[in-house]
Amino acid sequence: MILRFDHVNYVYDADGGQPVHALSDIDLTIGEGEFIGLIGHTGSGKSTLIQHADGLLKPVSGRILADGEDIWEEKFDRKALRARVGLVFQYPEHQLFEEDILSDVCYGPMNLGCSAEEARERAVSALRQVGIGEDLFGQSPFDLSGGQKRRTAIAGVLAMQPEILILDEPTAGLDPRGRDEILALARTLHEERNITVVLVSHSMEDIARFAKRLLVLGDGRLVFDGPTGEVFSHRAELEEMGLEIPRPQRLLEALKEHGFPEIGTGAYTAEEAARLILRELEKR
């Protein structure tokens, strides 16, 4: 699915005393099979933006188009849209509620009108994708580790078979291993299933490693939209907005100022940074 934001504006508390312009003239297209990062300071409009993507919020003006169709037209099936655009909220494990894991993941497809049998098939497949083994299917979600709980919650969204998966801070509160598992899962879904992924994160390092395109929101406006490396070259503007550039890139820029004027700075992992440093030293 191609999802287009056509000059979208959104105002909280439009009728009340203190209207807050949460989104201003957002114009962008999420193409099929993209892996997009979304960053911005707290209150920049990220959550408001993603809630527009599956019709949880309605623009005050402008349109949201799913494959060219206005999702707020009367005949448009927004219930189906919410399955096609899978939204994984922050701390999704807080919404696990069924007695066992399999029933919890079946809930979404059942709600969509799938037969019990089909719901079960979808749930099993989704749990497999997130790496939850069959030995755990009968367990209570509350007996799982933090990383497992979060993966189970993501499976609940995958069981709806979305075409676009939006992950809001999916690694917050997880340890390094749990974080890597979730990010590897996002990459696999993108590469092997061709699911469009939108990753919202405060970790510039995670964004840099995974997203090919980067959107930057600041006070409700889309300030940058471009290839990740290109956007991260705007260091001063990003820092002005309370954001950062990834640590490995910061290191290389510091080296550039300390006697390595020729060194490349496009590195997002320790491995890439080390490679660029060695390449520079070989010249000596």
């Binding site: 340890d175 390094p176 291993r177 290191l251 940074a273 440093i277």
Partner: peptide
């Protein structure tokens, strides 16, 4: 035990592996 090291430590380790 599933933990990492700060970026500077990681890069230093990789550089040392390559003989720097």
């Amino acid at each position: 035990i599933g933990l990492t090291v700060p970026m500077a430590v990681a890069v230093a380790g990789l550089l040392r592996q390559e003989g720097l």
